[in-house]
Write a protein that binds this DNA or RNA. Structure first.
Length: 215
DNA sequence: ACTTTTTGACCGGAA
DNA sequence: CTTCCGGTCAAAAAG
């Protein structure tokens, strides 16, 4: 794990309870179930200590192995579509970038590249790490939160995707202070001669977002 | 052994 | 004050 908590000053959370779970030895749910049937013993033993667990951290049960994989959940889609008359706000098919003054860039209806990288969602040259997912009231689609994995890079982005994987909306926040990482695995290395590329990008500082008269 | 994803709890601002 | 809600944290799981 990394320590991305730099932006937020250490607060006072000197002690995050984060108590380890008493029974953290089972590897999977199925195994536990099997073990339970065979042995039937009760490994759960209360230590008796007065450890207050504020974050119980619900156990992540393994999802159903092979269930509704091809069923596609059927009824989840809206049936009548009569209620919730909020306008669909369908802009043109082309992607629209709306940049506002606050280092935010919003993309609507991004077309997913045909040859998807599969590894990272909507690959744009940077590496992103997902750190959250919520469901906002406005839309029924879940919103995912990503952060740039480059050290000290404050850029984050929010992505809303439909059930089909189509990207409904992307919101970038901040700007990268580092060049795009190279896609290749090991081009680096060579003896001596260190090539510093950062200078080329560091000189702009105020040139990246000065124009964009819109908004 | 490592990095990334998953996911409920936690936080803070707004109502 | 409480409640609501969007954003973030971090343990566990997954790759």
């Amino acid at each position: 794990g990394s320590k991305w908590k730099m932006q937020s000053q250490e607060k006072i959370t000197a002690v995050k309870p984060v108590a380890s779970r008493p029974f953290s030895s089972f590897s999977s749910f199925s195994k536990l179930l099997k073990d339970f049937t065979t042995t039937g013993s009760t490994p759960i033993t209360s230590p008796g200590e007065t450890v207050i667990v504020r974050r119980p951290k619900a156990t992540r049960f393994a999802s159903p192995p092979s269930d509704l994989t091809t069923g596609i959940t059927a009824t989840t889609l809206q049936d009548g579509g009569s209620d919730t008359t909020h306008e669909q706000m369908v802009v043109d098919t082309e992607q629209q970038a709306v940049s506002c003054d606050d280092h935010q860039t919003v993309f609507h209806n991004i077309n997913k590249p045909i040859h998807s990288a599969r590894n990272r969602l909507s690959y744009d040259g940077y590496n992103w790490r997902k750190y959250g997912q919520k469901q906002v009231k406005g839309s029924e689609f879940p919103r995912s939160y990503y952060k740039c994995t480059y050290p000290t890079c404050p850029v984050k982005r929010k992505v809303e995707t439909t059930l089909d994987g189509q990207i409904a909306e992307i919101v970038y926040n901040g700007e990268h202070n580092h060049p795009k990482p190279h896609l290749s695995k090991k081009p680096v290395s060579s003896t001596g001669t260190e090539v510093v590329i950062a200078d080329l990008y560091g000189s702009n500082d105020a040139g990246a977002e000065s124009r964009l008269g819109g908004c």
